[in-house]
C-alpha cells in the first residue's frame, strides 16, 4: 500500500486545465472533447460488422470519411495515457469500483452503464459533452454551449436526490 498524493487544489487544477485548453485552441485550433471519439469508435466497430447498415444511415456514414484517424480519437487516446501516468504516479492506479456503501457492486456497474448510455445519446443530440460543448464551447462563449452547461447542472441536480444511495 503506497500513500496517495493528494488531489490538486481545485483552483490550481482549473488553471492547469485552462492552460491545456488554451494550448489546444492556439496550437491545434481544436477544442478538447471526448464523446465524439466514442461515437467514431462505435460507428467504426459497427461498420466492421454491418457495413451496409452503416452506409444506409446518412448520419453515421459521415464518420467513415476518416474513421478513427481523427483528432478527437487521438486526443482521447492521450487522455487515457495521461490518466494512467497521473493515477499511477499519484499511487491511485488500482483496480476497483467507486461506490458508496449503500449499493451493491452489480447495481453500481449497471448504473454506470445506464448513465453512460444516456450520456452517449445526449452528447450526440447536443453535439458534444461536458468537455467538447461545455468546457471548450463555453470558453469561446458559444451561446449553445452555455445553454447546454446550465442544463447539465439542472439535469444533475434534478435527479441527484433520487440516486443518492449510490454515493453513501
Amino acid at each position: 500500500m503506497t500513500t496517495q498524493t493528494k488531489f490538486w487544489n481545485p483552483y490550481l487544477a482549473g488553471l492547469a486545465l485552462g492552460a491545456v485548453l488554451l494550448a489546444s485552441f492556439l496550437v491545434a485550433g481544436h477544442g478538447l472533447g471526448a464523446s465524439g471519439a466514442s461515437y467514431r469508435l462505435g460507428v467504426t466497430a459497427l461498420d466492421a460488422i454491418a457495413p451496409a447498415h452503416v452506409a444506409a444511415n446518412e448520419y453515421m456514414a459521415g464518420v467513415k470519411e476518416h474513421g478513427l484517424r481523427d483528432w478527437l480519437v487521438f486526443e482521447v487516446l492521450g487522455v487515457f495515457l495521461g490518466g494512467v501516468v497521473a493515477a499511477y504516479t499519484a499511487g491511485r492506479l488500482r483496480p476497483g469500483v467507486i461506490k458508496g456503501a449503500g449499493v451493491s457492486t452489480g447495481r453500481r456497474l449497471a448504473f454506470a452503464l445506464g448513465g453512460g448510455v444516456l450520456m452517449g445519446i445526449a452528447a450526440r443530440l447536443a453535439r458534444g459533452c461536458t468537455s467538447g460543448q461545455a468546457l471548450s464551447g463555453g470558453a469561446v462563449l458559444s451561446a449553445g454551449s452555455w445553454i447546454f452547461m446550465l442544463m447539465v447542472f439542472a439535469g444533475g441536480y434534478a435527479l441527484a436526490y433520487f440516486v443518492r444511495r449510490q454515493w453513501r
Binding site: T2, L81, V84, V85, Y88, T89, G91
Partner: peptide, 15 residues
C-alpha cells in the same frame, strides 16, 4: 509513457 511509468515506479518504489 512506459519509460515514465517505470522510472517513477523505480524512484518512488511504487507497486
Amino acid at each position: 509513457v512506459p519509460f515514465v511509468l517505470e522510472a517513477v515506479e523505480w524512484r518512488k518504489k511504487l507497486a
